[in-house]
């Protein structure tokens, strides 16, 4: 692994992008890495632009903000349009293919994940789209271990949604295998 991996998860308020970042950060800690997680959201409760940034490194993190993303997750078209310029050429892009229709031709690896659709059909609620995305991210990048993410999910979500969140995460892992 590289010394410092910078991940940005973007979408709209209400999609759980901040929670996804928090879970990913916690997983990094369980894998005994140095982690900083920050977030940015609008003054509204839902619908405005939201992002969560995670830096996972082998040594202590100084500057806590992501400048060039090694990994970019976009869960809305506007999020992709806004943040694509910050993705490294050799980076990894994950999009929710049901919410992001247009992806410009780029050199980065692109993974189109039907996260919202799978969450709706398999788990009966799109609120699990964030953990499906997290599964795909874990599989494609290997930044954190599956075990660490599952432990982080269990500790971060309400008891009654634990099972569905873990299922959603595993669906995400499987989606990339195919």
């Amino acid at each position: 692994m590289k010394k410092r991996t910078e991940i940005r998860i973007t979408g709209l308020g209400g999609q759980g992008v901040v929670l996804a970042g928090k879970i990913l950060g916690k997983a990094g800690v369980y894998d005994e890495k140095h982690v900083v997680q920050t977030q940015s959201y609008g003054a509204e409760a839902r619908g405005s632009a939201a992002k969560s940034e995670v830096i996972i490194a082998d040594k202590k993190v100084g500057f806590p903000m992501v400048r060039k993303c090694d990994v970019l997750v976009a869960m809305s078209q506007t999020a992709l349009d806004k943040h694509l310029k910050d993705l490294k050429e050799d980076g990894t892009l994950l999009i929710d293919e049901n919410l992001v229709r247009e992806v410009p031709k780029i050199r980065a690896r692109v993974f189109k994940i039907p996260a919202t659709k799978m969450a709706e059909t398999e788990l009966k609620s799109k609120i699990y789209a964030n953990v499906v995305m997290l599964g795909a991210l874990t599989k494609t990048t290997g930044i954190v271990s599956q075990q660490a993410v599952e432990k982080a999910i269990t500790e971060s979500v309400p008891d009654k949604t634990q099972e569905n969140n873990i299922r959603g995460f595993r669906i995400g892992l499987e989606l990339v295998k195919q």
């Binding site: 928090k22 950060g25 800690v29 140095h34 982690v35 900083v36 997680q37 920050t38 806590p64």
Partner: peptide, 9 residues
């Protein structure tokens, strides 16, 4: 805000 909302070890 940055330090207060940041998560780290």
């Amino acid at each position: 805000e940055i330090i207060a909302h940041m998560r780290e070890q």
